[in-house]
Design a protein around this nucleic acid. Structure first.
Length: 419
DNA sequence: TCTGGGGTCCTAGGACCC
DNA sequence: TCTGGGGTCCTAGGACCC
């Protein structure tokens, strides 16, 4: 049995945790640079605001309805996420954190110990609410995809009240028949549209298809999804938690950037992030993809990218930052108003399989990296960093509606006044 | 609902080779 | 000069997720 536990509109709920005054109000959260609406609390959902639609298009609607607007406060969300995940982990000894607010639990071996899955799900919900004031939904199912479907039912379909269990043929059919294809994990809008033409409307319709035929018509992903909907585990536990094959860090700027130092500083910060993530999953990269671009809505769209190939695979921040410096002049062009840039590690291999070059000694310094990671882990992210990542700070993003970092910054700690 | 964020995976198709 | 075959590698773009 698998479970999927996630928060109800996590970012919006997180904003309400330390600000009880807005708990009964409609709240939305915007993406980086306040570009799009990315979280809509259940109260605000009544206004039919399109999720991931551009903010400027709904600005008027939000103002008219006195909707509370917040910029993404990742420092706060990451910390609340940690707290929430730790609580959920108490309920199962194998947890896979899938995203900032979702985790899969795999109840392998103690399926017979839990008599009442509904009750167990409600206990998880109550505990998380009591300790964090975050509302969560819980779905149980025999495969990860069915657990996802149950989670959808728990939160979106009437009569479930936050917990849904697929543990029989009847419950599977009942839930899948009430879900459209588009609500199935792995089926997006495009695929749903094509499926509709084939008269495949509900999740149940999709489950009735021949997996092989679906592979031929679409892809292996759809084939797997169909099997999973029928209780055949394809995304087995090892797959769900597999190492990433690509790691990217990209951002758009709060204002257009023209100076080379600002662009370079941004790229160095991205490469630092990518190197950290590589070391965290014990991978090395053969290649680094580096790009910068002007705004997509500008008259003349400019995008320049470069793939840097390392003589031997690396996850060393210094080595990777040098690569950025080396190709920087091929990407930067004076006069361009840069809007976005980023770095990606592609073609990853596990540290275990590292092959040293007989003739070229690797420039990596694993001990230095280990020291850097230890210090940053102990004293906070970014405590120790490359000087070149601090040269120019004009590349930061806009966050005009930012709430305080209640839990991660001393001066933002909530104050309680007594009379 | 053509979408002003960010991240990851998959695949079609081009380049090149024998 | 065009076309037939078959394989690998690489890249851009499609599609999905939150």
């Amino acid at each position: 049995m698998y479970a999927l536990v996630d928060a109800v509109s996590f970012y919006a709920s997180a904003e309400k945790v330390f600000d009880p005054a807005i708990r009964s109000k409609p709240v939305v959260v915007l993406t980086n640079n306040d570009g799009c609406v990315c979280a809509i609390c259940p109260i605000a959902r009544r206004l039919n605001i399109p999720k991931f639609g551009p903010y400027f298009k709904v600005k008027h609607l939000l103002e008219q309805n006195n909707v509370v607007i917040r910029s993404s406060n990742y420092e706060l969300y990451a910390d609340l996420s940690d707290k929430m995940m730790n609580i959920i982990a108490r309920f199962c000894d194998t947890q896979h954190i899938y995203s900032i607010d979702e985790s899969f639990l795999h109840f392998d071996g103690y399926t017979s110990l839990i008599k009442d899955w509904h009750e167990y799900g409600h206990t998880i919900r109550r505990t998380v609410w009591r300790e964090t004031k975050l509302p969560v939904g819980v779905g149980f199912g025999p495969t990860p995809t069915l657990a996802k479907a149950a989670n959808h039912a728990a939160k979106k379909l009437s009569g479930f009240n936050g917990v849904a269990v697929i543990n029989s043929e009847q419950t599977r059919q009942a839930i899948l028949q009430r879900m459209s294809c588009e609500d199935v994990w792995g089926i997006g809008r495009r695929l749903a549209k094509k499926l509709k033409i084939m008269n495949i409307q509900t999740a149940w319709d999709l489950a009735q298809q021949n997996p092989r035929a679906m592979r031929r018509a679409f892809s292996v992903v759809v084939e797997r999804t169909v099997s999973e909907l029928n209780g055949i585990t394809c995304l087995n536990w090892d797959d769900v938690r597999q190492d990433k094959r690509e790691i990217y860090s990209t951002r758009s700027f709060g204002e257009r950037i023209c100076e080379p130092t600002a662009l370079k500083t941004a790229l160095i910060n991205h490469v630092t992030t990518v190197a950290n993530k590589l070391r965290a999953q014990r991978s090395l990269t053969h290649q680094l993809y580096i790009f910068a671009a002007s705004g997509a809505h500008e008259n003349k769209y400019y995008k320049k990218s470069f793939v840097y190939k390392f003589p031997s695979p690396t996850n060393d921040t210094c080595v990777m930052a040098n690569a950025v410096s080396e190709v920087f002049n091929k990407i930067y062009q004076p006069g361009i108003r840069f809007y976005k840039c980023g770095v990606g590690a592609v073609e990853l291999i596990s540290e275990q399989f590292q092959q040293n070059d007989l003739f070229n000694k690797s420039p990596d310094n694993p001990k230095l990296m280990q020291c850097l990671d230890t210090i940053n882990k102990r004293y906070g992210k970014g405590m120790l960093s490359l000087a070149s990542s601090k040269l120019n700070d004009r590349w930061h993003m806009n966050r005009d509606f930012l709430s305080p970092q209640y839990t991660t910054r001393w001066r933002d700690i909530p104050k309680i006044y007594c009379e």
